[in-house]
Structures are given as C-alpha cells and as structure tokens.
Amino acid sequence: MGKTPLLHIQNVVKHFDISGGLLDQLAFSGGKIVRNRSVVHAVNNVSLDIMEGETLSVVGESGCGKSTLARVVIGLYPPTAGEIHYRGQRMDNLQGTARRPFRTKAQMVFQDPYASLNPRMRVRQILEEPVRFHKPELSGDQVREKIAEVMDQVGINPVWAERYPHEFSGGQRQRISIARALVLDPEFIVADEPISALDVSIQAQVLNLMMDLQEQRNLTYLFISHDLSVVEHISDRVAVLYLGTLCELATSEELFENPRHPYTKALLSAIPRIGKGFQHIKLSGDVPTPIKLPTGCVFHGRCPNANDRCRQEVPVARTLESGSVVACHGVEEGRI
C-alpha cells in the first residue's frame, strides 16, 4: 500500500474503427440513410498496476486483447480512453520528445524473432540502431562496448556480431531480440509471446535467461503468453482477460490454486498436463465477436453460473479477502 507502482493502468479502453471510408458506412434502412460504424472493442476498461521488479502476466484466448493492451501500455497505440502512468507520471498524453525518456525505459520483445529482426541488417547494426538514436552522445567505442556487453549477457558470443539473423537458430534469434531490448538499459520490458515460436527445450533456455536478466537488472516484466504452465511458473501475478475485459487478477499461486472467476476456472481446467486426468470444464458456444459486445457480463453467454443480473449488469472488479480481484456477480453474491 502507498507504494507507487511502476505502471498504473487506469480504465484503459482501446477501440479499433474498422468501418472503412464514409461511403462504406452508409446504408439505406427503413427509408432513411443511416451511418453504420463497426468498432472492435479490443480492450474494455482495464485497470491494473504493475509493481517494480515483478512479472505480471496477461493470459486469455487469442483475440482477447492481450497484444492490444501491451501496445497501449508501451505507447505504440494511443488509448481510446483511460490513462497510463509511469512512476506516477501520466504518459499516454505526451507527444514526441516529451515521451522520449519513457521510450528508452520501456522496451518490447515480440513473438516472432524472424519477423522482428531485419534480415538485411547484421546483428551489430540491429543492436546499434537504438543506441545511436537515443544516445547519440556515446562514442563509437562506447557503443561497441555496450553491444558486446548485452550480447554476452544474452549468451550470444560477441564475435558473431557481423552475422545476419538467418545465420542463427530460432532460440538464438530470440536472444538477439532480447539483447536489442536491453541495449538501452530499460526498466520495463513488455514481452508478447516471446517463447511461443520456440521448442520446449529452447523455451526453457530463453525463460531462464529472462529470469536471470530480471534479477541482474531488476527488470519489471509485462509478460504475455498463452502457455499457462509457463505463466504459472514465472509470474508474480496474473491477469485473465476475456473479450478485452479483466476477469480476474491474482498472485500466481492464488490464481492457479484457487481460481475464482468461472472463466478462469474453465481456462485452467483445460491445460493439458502430464499425469493429470482429462477432466475439463466444458464451455458452451464460441467467444462472441468484440464488435458487438454482450450486455452485462461479457462471459454470460458461456458461463454455467449466469443469471438475469449477469445478462444485464456489467460486473465490477472487486478485491476479495484473498487479495484476488474478480469481476463476477456470482462471486460477489457468494453463489460461486
């Protein structure tokens, strides 16, 4: 309590307007010309704090808004509504140079190291680029030193700096992406599915590297993954999203041992684990489209515990005794 979070995400909303040009939007209906807009409700009123030095993971099924939230947090997308504060200072409304200090402190690592590394650039150039841009005062020798240091830290021999990305394996390429994120000595790293393209034995190497770096550099991670076993292992806290809405936020232990939200329960029950039986909670139907959000609780159409209130009233995220934050009428009413 009272401690300023590294990041404070407050009522963040992100919509994408996909209606196209004005002419595409016009339609003739009931004798009148009407304008139809289609809006993807990718992130809906999400609030959470990320504390310094912790790993906060975001989980949920594809399309639930994980990447969008990550991009809003790091400033790649402006939020449609809501605020982002970094060390107590509001960031989302800053432009251009006012934003620069934050840009060096927060870095992103993407899923696909094949797509995110320019194939025509040598590793040295890939790593130099952000340094030259953000720290033009450094001498050539200082830049080279910095690059050798980060390459060493991520376990890529600095003598390979003149090679191109395709000369490395997938795991090594992801290490290079991580090195690129590190050259500016950031405090905060958003990692969007950083290990999803890697094989299990390589995943372990990259995850260990990320945990080591966190310890050495006191990094804070916003970690996105659909691999729930990995999330359980590396996270301090976990946020569960469904249709762009925060369902539950809890410490990793609490969430995996005692999930409270009906969606979290279903999601966790479906994790295939060695030696675990094959009993999982079956949900009816499919995830609805984020273009037309359901009324009330976004999960009500598939929830085994839904009642009339769920169909009408949006549940508010509340903190339970356990410290978990849960947005569910059923939990609030004590019937779940």
Partner: peptide, 23 residues
C-alpha cells in the same frame, strides 16, 4: 528425460531445467 524435465511443472526452484544447445 531432458524434455520432460524442461517443462515448467518439473522445475524445483525458479530455474527451469534446460537441455543445452539445440537439435
């Protein structure tokens, strides 16, 4: 053995057991 040990569920501390190198 290495593959199963590398799963997060199999880790005893915070570090995962990794198989060195790659296929």
């Amino acid at each position: 053995r290495g593959l199963i040990a590398a799963l997060p569920e199999a880790a005893t501390g915070s570090r995962l057991n990794q198989i060195p190198g790659s296929m």
